[in-house]
Amino acid sequence: MSEFLQFLFSGITIGAVYAMVALGFTIIYSASDVINFAQGEFVMLGGMCTVFLAAAGVPLPIAALLAIVITAGVGAALCKLAIEQARGASVVALIIITIGASVFLRGIAQVVFDKQLHRLPAFSGEQPILIGGATLLPQSLWVLGGAGVIVIALHRFFRRTLFGKAILAAAQNRQAARLVGININLVMLSSFALSAAIGALAGILVTPITLTSYDVGTMLALKGFAAAMLGGMGNPVGAIVGGLLVGVAEAMGAGYISSDYKDAAAFLIILAVLSFLPQGLLGARIRERV
């Protein structure tokens, strides 16, 4: 029983990170129908910027804040300089653009930062918490808490603020939204900045546990995408549920079956969901433009 609990803790900690990446996918997809394959690089940027700012003597909380702002800026730049310029491009073209952005950001990061692994100190100590024979790091609580706060804040943002509603409206019907005076470009820009900021926050919270380096983004993006897909593309709650499920599936697979094919779990989930359940668990129907 204690081992099950241990696998579960391990799964939900990593799952919370996947969930935050999935949220990022979801926000951008809602606002622009673009799947941003550079989402994992936002996580990397958050972690790496914080590490390097902290190493330069900036106090950790300020370094973290700056890292989020920088990453949000990169997200906005990506939208402005690439996605907006490619208006009217086919889906294939957009995929290649965001993959290009991901490869580009990784390439720049290994020059601007370095190719080494880095870690941040845990925010509140490293004394494991003992629960039912299993252990949990205090930092895991930070990760879970961070994911929770983001979900609640997003929910409020989308339901309570005019701007949030504008994004939702744009997601529903871009043409109609434009007609009622919503600035679609601004909606897209802010969705990129917002999801970059969320990615960065995830990166900062998780770096004390998982370490970071210039190339951590790819795998995270893939797992996050699997999570978003599992939960149903464009559904924030689905993204969270999907993320946790992928994380737990991996941990259980590694613990009970074999750790050799742990990474395969996410991709098997992707293939299964795509083949049998294209709308995801909680998803809206996949919309398609003719």
Binding site: Q6, F7, F9, M219, A251, A254, K262
Partner: peptide
């Protein structure tokens, strides 16, 4: 564990 894995508690358990 895989070269990019970031949590080995299940295996160590």
């Amino acid at each position: 564990y895989g070269p990019k894995d970031n949590d080995m508690t299940p295996q160590l358990t």
